[in-house]
């Protein structure tokens, strides 16, 4: 997940491949686009946007918005796109719009009772204690201030570079970096407090 030199090269090649596919045939390219990015997009909206959203709704709406935008882009613009960071920006905007709409018309979306989703790809990760750990960590993440939460989720859950995080959130890289490190520090502190006061399993 860290971006070393090889990783960066592979990432650049992958980006280039996606751009060409989108530019050549939007719908076929978009199928690949969804295949590659559905996990980070879904994870981002699930983990960063809190419990009060239907992550699947939000992920679907994110991709549909992205598609509508891409339809209006010419080849030059598509070839200049940073697809991952751009898509995360779309996801965050979609989420903000939904929060705003919900605020206007209060709804009955439950705030808790979330079931921790099982990992489809890694059954080993689903032993009871691992699920419990993930649940606890997810809860701690949701409790972080918005700026730190978004930065932290994009950086580690979605595996974006700090530069991409900054682009997605719309802030300078230095700011993104400090959101990330403050978020980490706060998580560690809260986790330590829990270890002190809770009965160990």
């Amino acid at each position: 997940m860290g971006v070393d030199a090889n990783g960066e090269e592979a990432h650049a090649a992958e980006t280039e491949r996606l751009r060409s596919m989108l530019a050549d045939d939007l719908d076929v390219g978009f199928a690949e686009f969804v295949r590659v990015f559905q996990r980070p997009v879904y994870s981002a909206v699930l983990r960063a946007c809190g419990h009060a959203v239907d992550a699947e709704d939000l992920a679907a709406e994110t991709f549909l918005r992205a598609y509508r935008a891409l339809r209006g882009y010419d080849r030059r613009r598509i070839m200049a796109l940073q697809p991952r960071a751009w898509l995360m920006t779309v996801a965050l905007n979609t989420w903000r719009n939904q929060v705003r709409d919900r605020a206007r018309q209060p709804s009955e979306v439950p705030l808790d009772g979330e079931v921790e989703p099982r990992s489809a790809t890694d059954p080993v990760a689903d032993t009871v204690s691992r699920l419990e750990d993930r649940r606890l960590l997810a809860t701690l993440v949701v409790g972080l201030p918005a700026a730190q939460r978004l930065a932290l989720v994009l950086r580690y859950v979605c595996d974006l570079s700090v530069v991409e995080v900054a682009e997605a959130i719309g802030c300078p890289a230095g700011t993104a970096k400090s959101h990330v490190s403050r978020g980490l520090r706060r998580l560690r502190a809260e986790h330590a407090v829990r270890e002190l006061y809770e009965v160990p399993r």
Binding site: M1, S43, A138, R185, R188
Partner: peptide
């Protein structure tokens, strides 16, 4: 407890790895 700044260095950190494990496949 290692305080990293998350600036693109490979994670040797348990918390960072645990955060990465929060990624989920969509339905």
């Amino acid at each position: 407890i290692i305080d990293r700044d998350g600036g693109g260095s490979p994670p040797v950190d348990e918390l960072e790895a645990a955060l990465a494990a929060l990624a989920v496949d969509p339905p």
